[in-house]
Simulated assay, not measured.
Amino acid sequence: MPVTFDVHGPDGAATVLLSSGLGGAAAFWQPQLPALLAAGYRVIAYDQRGTGRSPGTLPAPYTIAHMAQDVVEVLDASGTAACHLVGHALGGLVGLQLALDAPGRVSSLVLVNAWSAPNPHSARCFDARLALLAAHGPRAYVEAQPIFLYPAAWCAANAARVQAEVDHAFAHFPGEATMRARIAALRAFDVDARLGSIGVPVMVAAAMDDTLVPWTCSQRLADGLPDTTFERVPHGGHAHTVTDSPTFNAQLLAFLARAGAGRLV
Score class of each variant (00 low, 15 high):
A39K: 07
A14E: 05
Q69G: 07
D167I: 03
V162N: 03
A152R: 13
S108Y: 07
R53M: 07
A117Q: 13
Y46H: 15
L212E: 13
A25F: 05
A205E: 00
T80N: 11
V106T: 11
G91N: 04
D209L: 07
L18E: 00
A250M: 05
A259E: 09
A156R: 13
L17Y: 09
L17T: 15
P120I: 10
L253E: 06
T178R: 10
D167C: 07
L98I: 00
V71C: 01
Q163M: 09
T229L: 14
C125Q: 11
G236M: 10
A206M: 11
C217M: 14
P31Q: 08
A261R: 15
L85S: 04
L37W: 11
S197R: 14
L212I: 08
F173R: 02
R180Q: 13
L93F: 01
T241V: 14
H84T: 09
G12I: 10
S20L: 08
D190I: 01
A177G: 08
A239S: 14
D190E: 05
L253Y: 05
E73G: 06
V213P: 00
A140Q: 12
A205M: 02
P234H: 08
L256S: 00
V191E: 01
L58D: 02
T243S: 15
A250K: 12
M179E: 11
H238L: 13
L253C: 06
L18P: 04
A14K: 01
G79P: 05
S19Y: 06
N158L: 12
R182V: 00
A123L: 14
E176D: 14
A250R: 15
G262F: 11
D76C: 09
V74S: 04
A206E: 06
W115G: 01
S107R: 15
G91I: 00
L264Q: 13
A254K: 12
W215V: 11
V265R: 06
A193C: 09
F28A: 12
D209A: 10
I44C: 09
I147R: 08
G50E: 01
D76K: 07
V265T: 14
D11H: 10
R258H: 12
V204W: 02
D244L: 05
T80P: 05
S20P: 12
L133S: 05
W215P: 02
L149M: 15
T51S: 07
R49A: 08
V166C: 11
P61F: 06
E143V: 13
P174M: 06
L33A: 10
L221W: 01
T228P: 03
Y150F: 15
H136E: 15
